[in-house]
Design a protein around this nucleic acid. Structure first.
Lengths: 219, 219
DNA sequence: TAGTGGTCTAGACCACTAT
DNA sequence: TAGTGGTCTAGACCACTAG
């Protein structure tokens, strides 16, 4: 069904409901229900009396994006250096956030994120190991979100918390700023459906990074 | 239809579809469509094989909220002191954000926001005066969003930007923190439909405030 | 086993748009 | 006037839940 829409240009007309009825030999209500799903997803747009059309993509601001995607949107080149990638046992905080038991095996992945060559952010990601068998033994992926997607665990939504702080001494060197400079601390709990897929804590250089959020409108 | 749900406790069962069919003498598809709307709105929840139930209110994180509402959600008492409320001419930055011409009259409203008695945030709100005739001559409202709502200008969505900074000297006294302490700077462009209704810049004490955002899921 | 929601059929009439 | 989506009817079978 969605293949009918996949490659079409925004604004171009979709087949009419009655057309699909005769084409597939199903009832019109059935066609409507199938199309309803695409309308809700924002792929189709119905105009009474005129027809059904491929919708213009809605604003993508509040969609969940990876660091790489986010920097691409800013026209910056994203790079990452892995500082640490190992198996650990979940401490109390991470265990609670991941909705697992304390002491269960997790993957801890720390990366320095660069943008246009200069440090932007220091990120610690924590993942439930049992969801990602063999993750550390294979080559580490370029994009964590892509790797999750390949396992059917693409985050569909996230709970983020953001606050301001002063840069700690142990972070300053990595970020190439002075201790005491302003930083933005960003925590994310990323979920795929009901499953907590990843928890992360990031420290962004405030002089290079402003977070943009769109609120109260579809993604 | 929605009166069937209005006063009911979350989790309590709604009448079954077939029950409503015989009660109202309509077809089941009709009942389903009416209920579908409520399900999409998040008022009802269907559980196959069990029934339809009044949904627990979904997380409201990505709905646009006022300061007062936000603090209430944190269980804190919100208060505001007006530091400045006057007519000004739009400077270049505010004019662009409000989508008006430079020099057009605006309302500038500066408030110190308190929570549980202590300073939390310093907010400068800018509004297009022509949208709010007589705003400054009447008594200033307790809630800006309520005042906008009464004029049919309740913000339905907003573009926010958030970054970290160090507290400036002129802000420190109001916020009762030291200059150089970490603060969260929050800018908002609030829209009602296509109309820009308000632009604001806020400075939050980082030691008292963490922003929570939910991304990629309905409000 | 009875009741529930999920899905589907094969029609129907309406308001609206375009020609 | 023909075609579109919006809504509705009066059934039907299915998978699932619960007693």
């Amino acid at each position: 069904m969605r293949t009918l829409v996949s490659g079409m240009a925004p604004g171009s007309p979709a087949p009419s409901e009655r057309e699909l009825v005769s084409q597939f030999g199903v009832a019109r209500m059935t066609v409507r229900q199938a199309m309803d799903a695409l309308v809700v997803e924002g792929l189709l747009e119905r105009i009474p009396g005129k027809g059904t059309f491929v919708a213009r993509p809605r604003r993508t601001a509040s969609a969940i994006t990876s660091y790489t995607e986010e920097m691409a949107r800013r026209g910056m080149l994203a790079e990452s250096v892995t500082l640490l990638a190992r198996r650990e046992q979940a401490g109390p905080g991470v265990a609670r956030a991941l909705a697992i038991s304390e002491g269960e095996p997790i993957v801890h992945w720390r990366r320095l994120r660069r943008a246009d060559g200069a440090p932007m952010c220091l990120e610690d990601a924590y993942l439930t190991e049992s969801l990602l068998p063999g993750f550390l033994h294979a080559q580490l992926p370029t994009s964590l979100y892509d790797a999750l997607e390949q396992r059917g665990l693409r985050p569909t939504w996230a709970e983020d918390s953001i606050n301001a702080d002063l840069c700690h001494g142990d972070e300053a060197g990595h970020l190439d700023i002075d201790a005491g400079a302003a930083v933005l601390r960003h925590s994310r709990r990323a979920l795929s459906g009901d499953k907590v897929v990843m928890v992360s804590r990031s420290v962004y250089r405030a002089d290079r990074f402003t977070l943009w959020v769109q609120i109260g409108r579809d993604a």
